[in-house]
């Protein structure tokens, strides 16, 4: 079975994630879009693993999942701290540092 449809889907997911990061304003949603990009990477990993016929890509998907979980821990901690201080999780409101 050809991996092409899966790669196309993964490219779509990656693009949706990347566009989401650029246009959305809520830090949580931006972070969800980043997770979407990581999962698009996972889909590409397993599709290519199927195509080239070794297990490296599937193992990589597990590594990426674990790293993404660690990133959630750190990321949510930071976003919650910001929210508690400012009562807002919008990335536009965090604008003390500029120029």
């Amino acid at each position: 079975m050809s991996p092409t449809p899966f790669l196309v889907l993964s490219a779509l997911l990656f693009s949706i994630g990347a566009i989401g990061v650029l246009v959305r304003r809520n830090a949580i949603v931006v972070f969800m879009c980043i997770e979407l990009m990581l999962n698009a990477g996972n889909l590409a990993f397993v599709s290519f693993a199927r195509q080239v016929g070794n297990l490296d890509g599937q193992v990589a998907a597990f590594f990426v999942m674990v790293v993404a979980a660690a990133e959630v821990v750190v990321g949510l901690a930071i976003i919650v701290t910001i929210y508690r201080t400012r009562r807002s999780a919008s990335v536009d409101d965090a604008s003390l540092l500029k120029y």
Binding site: I34, G41, F45, S47, F48, D56, E71, I78, V91, L96
Partner: peptide, 30 residues
């Protein structure tokens, strides 16, 4: 306040760039 803001900006942009890095790895693996 600016310290927390720096952390959030660094985190969101850093996570964004590492997601791009992962996709690049997937392409080179392919």
């Amino acid at each position: 306040l600016i310290s927390q803001e720096a952390a959030m900006k660094y985190f969101l942009l850093g996570a964004f760039s590492s997601a791009i890095f992962v996709y690049g790895i997937a392409m080179v693996y392919g």
